Amino acid sequence: MYFRHSNEMWSEFPELVPGVLFAEGISADAIVTDRIASYHATAAERLAQGSESEMPEIQAWRRSFSKMGLKPTQYRCASEALLRRFRQEGSLPQLHPLVDLCNAVSIAFVIPVAVFDLAKITGDLEVRHAGGSESYLTFSGETEHPEPGEVIFADTIGQAHARRWTNRQSGRSAVREDTKSVLIVAEALHDSASADVPHLIGMIAAELASVWSVEARSGLLSRSSPRFDLSSAMNLQPEQKRG
């Protein structure tokens, strides 16, 4: 099993910087309240200097959404949507400790962070353009079919696990109480992304180690090295992972 962006995506968005983590041993009983508060404070400091729409990280995503033919104020990347809600309500909904933590990191870094339950993904996962036959399950249980050419996260059997790139994840692979293994993906397009994404990935890895006592396997992808192989990590014995 692997995760990657298609060659077409790299050609269209050469400035893309993706970071990936794989972790096993996640549980829903972790306490992350204080950790989340720290990241929320960082986000509040950023918002005190100006609205999310003025941030270079968001402006880069808005340009990319426009390039994909989407209205950036109608379809927002995940980090902008979260920051907007945080600015308006002063908090974010509590869903699952890992999701809550990653959402908090996302608004602190202003970078979209997706968390997938690997048990619900069949085969490989690729960020690519839709062919039109893929199926997407909404959180309300409805099935949608992304338009041909739309950027999606698609697995081997054509299940779309996210629509409009970083706009909306699927209910199919959402993290639930019984989730054990996850794939976490952070993507950025702004000028300092090559420094910010590794920092973000390192922070999440440290949180996974501290909160869940798991050692995440992480990687930074590029056009010359676009593939993150999960098979080798999933096949390691526990003592090998700790070593």
Results as ranks from 00 to 15, higher is better:
M1T: 04
H5K: 06
E8C: 07
M9Y: 14
W10H: 02
W10A: 02
W10Y: 07
S11T: 15
S11A: 15
E12N: 14
E12V: 12
F13E: 14
P18W: 14
G19L: 13
L21K: 11
L21A: 14
L21R: 07
F22R: 09
A23D: 04
I26P: 12
S27D: 10
A28N: 05
D29R: 07
D29K: 08
D29T: 12
A30K: 10
D34W: 12
D34V: 11
A37Y: 12
T42A: 04
L47P: 06
G50R: 01
E52Y: 09
E52T: 10
S53N: 12
E54V: 08
M55C: 07
E57H: 05
E57N: 05
I58W: 00
Q59E: 11
A60C: 14
W61G: 06
W61Y: 15
R62Q: 06
F65I: 09
S66Y: 06
S66Q: 13
M68S: 08
G69Y: 08
T73I: 13
Q74C: 12
Y75T: 12
A81K: 11
A81I: 09
L82Q: 14
R87C: 11
Q88M: 13
G90S: 12
S91C: 13
L92D: 07
P93W: 12
L95A: 10
H96G: 11
L101H: 05
I107Q: 01
I111R: 12
P112E: 04
L118G: 10
A119W: 05
T122R: 00
T122W: 00
D124L: 02
L125N: 03
H129D: 10
A130Y: 05
G132P: 03
S133C: 06
S133P: 01
E134L: 04
L137A: 03
F139D: 14
F139L: 15
F139K: 11
G141Q: 00
E142S: 15
E144Q: 11
E144P: 00
P146K: 06
P146C: 03
P146H: 03
G149I: 05
I152G: 03
D155F: 03
Q159F: 09
A160D: 00
A160G: 00
A162I: 03
W165N: 02
T166Q: 15
T166S: 13
T166R: 08
N167F: 13
Q169A: 14
S170R: 01
G171M: 00
G171I: 04
G171L: 00
G171W: 03
S173Y: 02
S173H: 00
T179S: 02
K180C: 00
K180H: 04
S181E: 01
S181A: 09
V182L: 05
V182N: 04
E187F: 12
A188R: 02
A188G: 00
H190M: 13
S194E: 15
S194G: 08
S194V: 08
A195P: 07
A195Y: 09
A195G: 07
V197K: 05
H199W: 14
H199G: 04
L200P: 06
I201L: 04
G202S: 04
M203F: 07
A206E: 07
A206N: 06
L208G: 09
A209V: 06
A216P: 12
R217Y: 07
S218F: 08
R223F: 09
S225L: 12
P226L: 12
P226S: 09
R227N: 11
R227M: 13
F228H: 08
F228M: 13
L230K: 02
S232D: 07
E239A: 15
Q240C: 06
